[in-house]
């Protein structure tokens, strides 16, 4: 069960983190004037922090949902 919860959770928080990173890169692109490395670095950092934020929240939710079934 633990593995299933982990897999299900990861299928949610990983896309969230990736999208946040991508959104950041797009925003940086739209604003313009940033070197590529800064855009990439920023996207990675924002994505990483988003992963850290979403991981426990999503895992707890999924666990709750799973146990409630």
């Amino acid at each position: 069960m633990e593995k299933q919860i982990a897999r299900r959770s990861a299928s949610i928080y990983v896309p969230i983190a990736l999208s946040t990173g991508v959104l950041f890169a797009l925003a940086a692109n739209l604003v313009g004037g940033y070197p590529l490395v800064a855009k990439l670095g920023g996207a990675v950092w924002v994505g990483l922090l988003s992963l850290i934020v979403s991981m426990p929240l999503v895992t707890a939710r999924v666990k709750k949902h799973w146990q409630g079934r």
């Binding site: 925003a27 940086a28 604003v31 920023g42 950092w45 924002v46 922090l49 988003s50 934020v53 426990p56």
Partner: peptide, 17 residues
């Protein structure tokens, strides 16, 4: 701790943009 990470994202975005 989660709040701080959210804050860290916001701080980064503000100073970056």
């Amino acid at each position: 701790i989660l709040g701080v990470h959210v804050l860290a994202v916001l701080v980064f975005i503000f100073w970056f943009f």
